[in-house]
Simulated assay, not measured.
Amino acid sequence: MALFRQYIAPLLVVIIFVISLVVVSARIFLPADMAAPAPTDQVSQSAAIGVADLPPALTHLIKGLPDDPALVEQF
């Protein structure tokens, strides 16, 4: 058991660290268009999530509460 604790376990930790470092560093060698962050398009979240299918009582969980303080008290 001491052999595992002193030699094998630390070696596994170092190997996992080196593998993850190589994988993360691989971005340097990617082409410029692949290394950039993903583009964000203006997509209607209500259409993507399907808010129209939800009952009216649950739509505020997806869209959030309205900005008008008078309407917030209704919820």
Rank of each mutant, 00 (worst) to 15 (best):
M1L: 15
M1Y: 13
L3T: 11
F4H: 11
F4V: 09
Q6Y: 10
Q6S: 06
Q6T: 09
Y7E: 07
Y7W: 13
I8P: 05
A9D: 07
A9M: 05
A9H: 06
P10V: 03
P10S: 12
L11C: 12
V13D: 14
V14N: 06
V14A: 11
V14Q: 09
I15R: 12
I15V: 15
F17K: 05
F17G: 07
V18N: 00
I19P: 00
I19L: 04
I19N: 00
I19G: 01
L21I: 08
L21N: 08
V23Y: 10
V23M: 13
V23F: 13
V24Y: 13
S25I: 08
A26R: 07
I28L: 10
I28C: 13
F29P: 00
F29E: 04
F29H: 08
F29M: 10
L30G: 04
L30S: 06
L30E: 07
P31C: 02
P31R: 01
P31F: 05
A36V: 10
A36R: 01
P37M: 04
A38V: 11
A38E: 06
A38R: 10
P39R: 02
P39S: 07
T40M: 00
D41E: 09
D41L: 14
V43W: 07
S44H: 07
S44K: 05
S44F: 09
Q45F: 13
Q45L: 15
A47C: 04
A47G: 09
A48Y: 02
A48V: 03
A48L: 04
I49R: 10
G50H: 03
G50F: 02
V51P: 00
V51Y: 03
D53N: 08
D53C: 09
D53H: 10
L54R: 04
L54N: 04
P55S: 06
P56T: 00
P56Y: 10
P56N: 01
A57N: 08
A57G: 12
A57D: 14
L58P: 01
T59M: 02
H60F: 04
H60C: 03
H60L: 03
H60T: 00
I62W: 08
I62G: 03
K63F: 13
K63R: 14
K63Q: 15
K63G: 13
L65I: 03
D67W: 03
D67H: 07
D67A: 12
D68K: 03
D68E: 09
D68Y: 11
A70L: 14
A70H: 06
L71F: 14
E73K: 15
E73Y: 12
E73G: 08
Q74S: 15
Q74W: 15
